[in-house]
Design a protein around this nucleic acid. Structure first.
Length: 152
DNA sequence: GCCAACGTTGGC
DNA sequence: GCCAACGTTGGC
């Protein structure tokens, strides 16, 4: 079972939005970056995912969700009224993918980016690397355990 | 609000 | 295929 991390601006979709709808599949859509999309495609049902809050007051890992549906064409790419509309994508040959996720847990205390940056063992995680903009990334089992240990 | 770092686009 | 220009991300 693979592990992942996704970035989100909490004003868009936060761990609290998941927590408010336990048991409900929430689409993870709007990813418009090829490398991130390729990782979305690799996600399988049951995979666990860190939710990372970016571009906000409290930056860091805020909780855990689970993939409940593997990749399918992101409907928003075909919706002309959506900011995620992609006129170059067609239903025959969709360019962008979405997955569904549901709430697992909110961390009792957010794990700050600063703390993650200072952890030995996370050097390979794109999240803590300078200038990195990847919004969907794999997390190794070792990295996952290292981070989960910080909870509580 | 600033700006460095990055990904994408498009002219050549 | 190169690369300058541009738009976006995201920490500070």
């Amino acid at each position: 079972m693979a592990k992942w991390l996704v970035k989100t601006e909490p004003s868009e979709c936060s761990i609290d939005d998941f927590a408010r709808a336990p048991g409900t599949a929430i689409p993870w859509d709007g990813v418009r970056n090829y490398q991130a999309r390729n990782f979305l495609r690799e996600m399988t049902e049951g995979d666990e995912v860190f939710i990372y809050h970016s571009s906000c007051k409290h930056i860091g890992i805020a909780g855990i969700v689970r993939v409940t549906r593997s990749a399918y064409p992101d409907p928003k790419q075909f919706d002309a009224s959506s900011p995620y509309h992609d006129p170059k994508s067609t239903p025959d040959n969709p360019r962008w993918q979405a997955v569904d996720m549901q709430f697992v847990r909110k961390l009792p205390k957010l794990i700050s980016l600063d703390r993650l940056k200072n952890l030995t063992g996370l050097e390979q995680l794109p999240l803590v690397r300078k200038g990195n903009r990847l919004s969907v990334m794999p997390v190794s089992e070792d990295e996952w355990q290292l981070i989960v240990q910080l909870v509580d």
